[in-house]
Design a binder for these strands. Sequence first.
DNA 1: GTACTTCTTGTTAACGTTAACGTAATGGAC
DNA 2: GTCCATTACGTTAACGTTAACAAGAAGTAC
Lengths: 334, 334
Amino acid sequence: MTVRAPAMRDVARLAGVSHQTVSRVLNGHPHVREQTRLRVQAAITELGYRPNRAARTLVTGRSQVLGVVALNTTLYGPASLLSAFELAAAEAGFAVSVGSVRNLDRTSITAVVERHLAHRVAGIVVIAPVESAGEALECLPTDIPLVTVDGDPRRPVPLVTIDQVEGGRLATRHLLDAGHQTVWHVSGPADWFDSAGRLAGWRETLQAAGAEVPPVLQADWSAASGYRCGQMLARTPEVTAIFTANDDLALGVLHALHEHGRRVPEEVSVVGFDDVPDAAYFIPPLTTVRPDFDTVAEASLGLLLTQIDAGVDHTLRQTISPTLITRDSVAAPR
Amino acid sequence: MTVRAPAMRDVARLAGVSHQTVSRVLNGHPHVREQTRLRVQAAITELGYRPNRAARTLVTGRSQVLGVVALNTTLYGPASLLSAFELAAAEAGFAVSVGSVRNLDRTSITAVVERHLAHRVAGIVVIAPVESAGEALECLPTDIPLVTVDGDPRRPVPLVTIDQVEGGRLATRHLLDAGHQTVWHVSGPADWFDSAGRLAGWRETLQAAGAEVPPVLQADWSAASGYRCGQMLARTPEVTAIFTANDDLALGVLHALHEHGRRVPEEVSVVGFDDVPDAAYFIPPLTTVRPDFDTVAEASLGLLLTQIDAGVDHTLRQTISPTLITRDSVAAPR
DNA sequence: GTACTTCTTGTTAACGTTAACGTAATGGAC
DNA sequence: GTCCATTACGTTAACGTTAACAAGAAGTAC
């Protein structure tokens, strides 16, 4: 049989103090004599005492855990975001409980949020890049700190977002500046805000420049769908510049152009989005737009902590601008 | 001011039963009259009652949370594993608390494990692909269900692992079978078990075939380091077949070969490892070895649940074999 | 009818922590 | 000396749940 794990009262007995004093030492309260504190700490290490967070959560009504609702995906963007957020949270002394969902529909999101609430998490981050997620957020309790990442800019919810429109502008302007008459666009899934924003930035820039706006090629995020769009583009002689909604799509497009013998960047220029680690080693190295996921993670943690300290606030909002990374996949048209 | 969240006793009062009966309904105990159960459930929904997991954890001494210790990385392998594990755990009714660490050294791992233990997690998964992680596991408490993924095969710890050696064999044999005299290898970081296993499988297969064993090119996991190794390989005329420890390295190698005008697969054949989603759209599409991360995740969850139910067992062990995915980057030498 | 089981419910006591309050002891200011 | 603030503790009562035990009702075997 295993013995009971030591509790506060065991530490207290060994140190010859009350359990409340142990609690004070653990929580760094003032008004504890140095000598007493050392005795308590010695007792803690001697017994191998580990505080029971569940008891603490029960009595305070709030845990030191942050809940995340994330799409179950290995897409570079969401994965990077999650990873960065975990690290930031850990540094702020919070554990992170991840609730993956297969789809960001209302039922799935609500279920995960319920689970988080049952655990009395201190706050919730919803990585909500699609339309349906926004709807789900409508019917959530409003009295808990919550931050949306990559969510619907029109909803009255605390929001941290990458400026997708600006990203679309950067890419498109870069191609126009290189001398192209117009820019074709391979878009991500229609229900993603990322797609919508990048597409809006692209269209807006073309219109502002008086350039013709070619039809949009609708894809998902995969290289496979990029390849299919790329085959159509490769067969269309007037195409000289392409902006794809992410780097995977760009890879598929590059592949198709290569198969059709259309050289990049000599005949066709391509710009991607995300700056995945491999982008610099595509053939040719890909010019792309880099969102700063670390900053997004820190910002969302910041908004969460603000609300935890100072109360829920639905007006908080932060936008992070992406930057253009120029490599070899763009050149002037011939 | 906000009202207190409803507790079990509020539900009990509304339903006209004792709180213990509510508990029985919630936990699906038998010996509750159908009519009573319906009354209780009606009260639950009417009040919007949510059980307090912290209280449950406190009294049972164990939470419905699984702790993960993972390297903070966006590498495809670890990220996929984590993602798959979260989903599997959620389906088994467990929440997942992720503890990211920058390095898998002893201090970092111990700190994260301590945090998990303080939360009284039901079990811990350590994704421990490097040597130093194995050492850290030595000095962990032995009375909690724990599973190592991708860890040191020589340690007496429950372990789920991809058969890296077999993967190395598959890749190498495939290249030898295509008619190549020998196969060069670009290896991952020396302290990763993944690297060591793949390298061992490669070396073993060459020796068994009586082929010459060329010097190993040591890289990290990045396309950048693959590119650097690729430049050396491209300048070495006798190189006709290359096996890289992952797909990113392969991309870097492909890039270097392309720059030096050495055609793949006509002059040089390349095989990668991981089957990242983009691999099919590299130029040329990459032949690679695919580890089944979903199966690994399910297996590790299984070993964890077994131990949670039936007690800690250090002899549990499971190995998942990878499969070869053939595409266009391999051909017979001229 | 008695004795024994099974079903259904209630009562009480934990679990380990923090909050609120109480109470000496100490140290100035006057 | 008194008065009061500050320091350094201890005592008691929660928090919301489950486990253990109790106990009445109902059914069954004889």
